[in-house]
Design a binder for these strands. Structure first.
Lengths: 335, 335
DNA sequence: GTGAAAGCGCTAACAA
DNA sequence: TTGTTAGCGCTTTCAC
């Protein structure tokens, strides 16, 4: 990489002259600016980002810590973050916590040493179970702002972007009750997570309000094979006439299982699930879907962080929690 | 963030003493080392990474440029890269090219200014179609090594990690012929990509070798709805008794479509597709799958890059192309 | 055993 | 209009 020094030498001027010329400083003569720029162009000069970062005490880089990049929802959020960051001239450094508290702490520590200006993260499963928040607080105390999304630690003071999980399943369940469904099952492989719990509560509330019916819940563990579990469950409870899935897979699987058991979807049984467009294509009929607008969540998180980073005036302002509303996209798996 | 300067001041020693003490230099007295380390611990001192990078002319960061993070295969490779990099003390900066040549060039430019030590990338679709390679060559000339994976530019001299695409579909097709299938259809939504073409050629070769049968290909465009296309195709060609899918979705969809058309899988029709474990769960029976070992691809790419980065001895060595063999995982959708 | 000073590449206050 | 200098945080050579 060519440096200011080399340009200066070749042009027989000082380093600062070159620097100023490239930054269109008023101080420098037109002719000099031209000469400098031409040579810089020729050598394809680009200012060294590391040196700039050191000087300006600012890296224009956002640290993103994600529990699981194979999760379609999370990678979609990452997509949204990247796009928004890129738009504002920020890069992102991605770490994957693998749902582990230890890795999450490590990543936070590692990137907090000047590599990034702030963080966007989704709390890992282990962190939520153990309810640890010290590492977040410490990072914030060090002056690095955090924006949490989806799974958040309520006791940490920072910006947050969440989904209306409770409401989403409450409304979806109501919807099924309005279809005159009587035995609505709830399936989830995320009952350890805050969002999983909220979704289950929304379902429960709607069911209990109905007076006549009662909840029926299938919790799928990470080590289970989802398809086998759902087959067994549906064989056992033959009276199920509707399913709500809290995760992105079991909805589609439930449709396929129902079909293979000879049921007609949606005549005999309705299914609603959290999912994305691409996955909802994996069943016939297509899954009626609770869309979480993952990209918007990512974009919102990035905006909130960047706004805070660019608030150089110094005046701190209150932390916000933005709720991105889900929407119910009706496809063929409901009446 | 606390700096060496601050520690030095508080301890009434020089900055260099503190630096040496923290690095366990022989030059420094035991007692001093102890005092320094205690204070550093107390203040949770961590060396500033940006300063280190500037000094050492090395960032310990890998730039990753991926065409599409919502593609399950690609995000799995990313996972593999991240894990391997993390293991060796490297961070990754991720850019998403969105299959655009322009964005790919931009990302390369942006990160080449001292932000990263080298690149791992998968060539974007537009780049492959236009067959542009200048930006890669220039980056390499600047001294930043590149490792390409999956979709590679053959005319660029660099390390590569690829899949045995041709062989995979050749063998899979053979497999179906051995099952005595007569009309084997090939479905793809990636016929623009180098890997898509290779996969189609492998299929063609096997079919043509069989003498008796002829190829039948369905190309699905990005703007098409895959499910609708496949339904129409299978209704039109009722004699299809086997399907090979070159992308990760159409295999699963084909099973669901076949079932909905009253066919028994695998009795009446066999299906094989490129896919991952999680998606192969989205049909009943489960899809017989060509596994690409995405994580290994990522890990291999990271290893190759890191090896080159750490080859400080200077002697350049030949570029390698590593082929990660696919494997055929038999599930219920074949005999 | 400890400290001073140079230098990585850049910007900016100040001097000329 | 141009150049000198200091400094961002760190390592390392050389001097004391």
């Amino acid at each position: 990489m060519v440096t200011l020094k080399q340009l200066a030498k070749e042009l027989n001027v000082s380093i600062s002259t070159v620097s100023k010329a490239l930054n269109n400083s008023e101080e420098i003569g037109k002719e000099t600016i031209k000469r400098v720029k031409e040579l810089a162009e020729l050598y394809n000069y680009k200012p060294n980002k590391v040196a700039l970062s050191l000087k300006q005490n600012r890296t224009n880089t956002i640290g993103v810590i994600i529990p699981d990049i194979l999760n379609h929802f999370l990678s979609k959020v990452l997509f949204g973050i990247e796009r928004e960051a890129s738009l504002h001239g920020y890069n992102i450094m991605t770490c994957i916590s693998n749902e582990s508290l230890e890795k999450e702490k490590e990543s936070l520590q590692l990137l907090a040493n000047g590599s990034v200006d702030g963080f966007i993260l989704c709390v890992s499963e282990e962190t939520q179970i153990k309810n640890e928040i010290e590492h977040f607080k410490q990072t914030i105390k060090q002056g690095l702002p955090i924006v949490m999304f989806d799974r958040v630690a309520h006791d940490v003071l920072c910006d947050k972007v969440i989904v209306d999980d409770f409401d989403a399943t409450y409304r979806a369940t109501k919807n099924l009750l309005d279809e005159n469904r009587k035995q609505i099952a709830f399936m989830s492989n995320i009952d350890d997570l805050s969002v999983g719990k909220l979704r289950e509560r929304g379902y429960n509330k709607a069911i209990l309000e109905s007076q006549d019916y009662k909840p029926l819940v299938l919790n799928i563990k990470k080590e289970d094979n989802a398809q086998d579990k759902i087959i067994a469950f549906m064989k056992k409870h033959k009276n199920i006439d509707a399913v709500i899935s809290a995760d992105s897979a079991s909805g589609v699987i439930a449709i396929n299982v129902a079909t293979s058991l000879g049921l007609k979807v949606p005549k005999d049984i309705s299914v609603i699930g959290f999912s994305s467009q691409s996955v909802s294509n994996h069943s016939i009929p297509r899954l009626t879907t609770i869309r979480q607008h993952a990209k918007e969540i990512g974009a919102n998180a990035a905006q909130m962080l960047i706004k805070r980073l660019q608030n150089i005036t110094g005046e701190p302002y209150d932390f916000k929690t933005k709720i991105v509303k889900t929407s119910l996209v009706k496809n063929g798996s409901t009446l």
